[in-house]
Write a protein that binds this DNA or RNA. Sequence first.
DNA 1: AATCCACAGGAAGCCCGGGAAC
DNA 2: GTTCCCGGGCTTCCTGTGGATT
Length: 418
Amino acid sequence: MIQKNLFEDIMRTKPIFKNREFLRHTYIPDRLLHRDEQVKQLARILAAPLRGETPSNVLIYGKPGTGKTATVRYVGKELEEASKNSQMKVNVLYLNCEIVNTHYRVLASLAETLLDQMKESEVVKNLPRIPRTGWPLDEVYRAFVKTLDAENRQVVIVLDEIDKLVRKEGDDVLYSLTRVNLELKKARTCIIGISNNLSFINMLDARVRSSLSGEEVVFPPYNANQLRDILEERARMSFCDGVLAEGVIPLCAAYAAREHGDARRALDLLRVAGEIAEEEGAETVTVEHVRKAHETIEQDHIVEVIKTLPLQSKLVLLAISILAQRKPRPVTTGEVYEYYKMICHKSGTDVLTSRRVQDLIAELDLLGIICARLVNRGRYGRTKEIKLNIHPLQVQALVQEDAILSLVGPEIFAFLSP
DNA sequence: AATCCACAGGAAGCCCGGGAAC
DNA sequence: GTTCCCGGGCTTCCTGTGGATT
């Protein structure tokens, strides 16, 4: 009985998606809507290499999901194409500094990408390969410079999330990258830095700052109308004809516009809504599916955050969840601390001071897992009223997954349950 | 008006692990 | 290998807060 219906059911319903890949934010579209201004500006700056000149460095700002990376990649691709027909060779090196963020690995990774791009060339054989680890920094730097300078060319270095490279004084990587032209005989480089953090520039060394911010391109958030255009374009490519009900795209756009115009968010929303509809066996995607998708995404986010919380924060959260389950009114800092101490004793964990726990509660609030409101209760002091933003039982299930707490064993949870 | 509760939250400093420099 | 430095987690100590109570 199972076998017979299994595929029948699936085949009977009409498909929702043509190709959902176009809804992923890793996909770079052939044309970028509502970013003409930025594309033009960037192209104007980056046209210099084609004339054999070195372009100035560029800093690109904008909130997440405003199309910064997509635009730069798009312009970069076009630039490489155009360079094939000109006498000047151009290489575009893309690096995400969130993933690669140490001095050593930035240089090594850039050199590696470049070697990769010139693997047909003869000179490649004489160039050093930088090992993953082991060399002193100056040697890595020399190898990097040698690789850059192997040919006559312009190298555009794109540093995505460049702010991740800056920690107070330690911007040596950026310093050496901005100075590297002085050591090159044949090649020229320029840097495109992408950041969603406007204030990071203030943390830079003055010399690096002036060098980096030769040109600036700002990416404003998309408004709801623009998001709608983007979604409509992608929806045409990804969904089967006529499966999207009236109002689906505007609602996705509205949700995302509320989240400071994040196009990624909008695309995710649309994709998840489609997936939910598919799972339900529905033939069309409705606004109700979008609402569910919105909740799912929000929920997934919180679940992920809780899972990765440090142990002590989990214990505090556990205390809050149990108290919240036991009584209807909001719990206070003092109550949480008392209960937290008890949990620590039962589980054999170190007990932190109440001051520290105050900070942990503030962090949980900031993460959106709880909602803490400062209240004055006159004679009965001043405290925070804490409410949980998700179901207590879900919190307890998630916390129970913690490796350290699972070593303690389930008896602690048995003891804690009401 | 004075008091007082139950914390909030700032400042300073300790401790420890990890990476860089020597 | 050793020393130095740095940042993050944490503690200690402290001052501030605003309305119910006296």
